[in-house]
């Protein structure tokens, strides 16, 4: 699925300073019954966001008009658990383009990169600085610069450099995905199969 190119993003951010935010919280299993990839944003963090009678939970961050933006900042071990790509779709569909944490679960990180969400891993100390910055000013701005691989807290100009491999960076900058790449090397795959054991 092609996605928007990602270069430089300047935005406010939504803080969720909990650890181990698992994909069952991001999108509960009962919302995985679609056969298309649309509308998942409505159920993002469904059970944290809404009461059983579907009224919004007032104390949940996404229901607080003070906080908004295209960057979601989560605690350590973000995206653990189920491999459901629906979690990444829900985050994207809601409007986030970048998720920041001090540590990502492997499958979530792959899924995010595959659909055009940039996962930015920073140190636990820098993550605290980001949370503090939003606590001080909910409208604090952050700059995610993919070409430079930097995440900047605009108010203080503090900068964290993040990792992303060259291949994935190229894909995100251009809006390509792995399926495009794999199609381009089909002859090599075909040749490999001829000597495959199984």
């Amino acid at each position: 699925m092609a996605y928007d190119k990602f270069t430089v993003l300047k935005s406010t951010a939504v803080p969720m300073p909990m650890e181990n935010i698992d994909t069952d919280q991001i999108i509960p299993a009962r919302f995985l019954k679609a056969t298309e990839r649309t509308g998942f944003g409505d159920n993002l963090f469904r059970d944290w966001r809404y009461n059983p009678d579907n009224t919004p939970k007032q104390d949940f961050i996404l229901n607080n008009p003070l906080y908004s933006g295209k960057i979601l900042v989560g605690g350590k071990n973000f995206g653990s658990g189920s491999s459901r790509e629906h979690a990444a779709w829900a985050i994207y569909d809601y409007g986030f383009r970048c998720v920041v944490s001090s540590f990502f679960a492997d499958i979530f990180k792959n899924n995010a990169l595959n659909i055009g969400i940039l996962p930015v891993q920073v140190s636990p100390e820098f993550l605290e600085k980001i949370f503090k910055s939003i606590e001080t000013d909910p409208k604090a701005q952050f700059i995610v610069d993919l070409p430079a691989q930097t995440f900047t807290i605009a108010a203080t100009s503090e900068i964290a450099v993040f990792d992303i491999n060259t291949y994935k960076k190229h894909n995100m900058l251009n809006g390509f995905d792995d399926i495009d790449y794999l199609q381009s090397i089909k002859p090599a795959i075909q040749a490999f199969t001829e000597k495959s054991f199984y």
Partner: peptide, 30 residues
Amino acid sequence: VVQHIDDGPDVLFIDRHFIHEVTSPVAFLG
């Protein structure tokens, strides 16, 4: 490994692929 990409992933050949009703429909749509 079908192909190794420098500072990137390996292209890994898959011998067996299992699919079920929940995580496959959007892939087929793709």
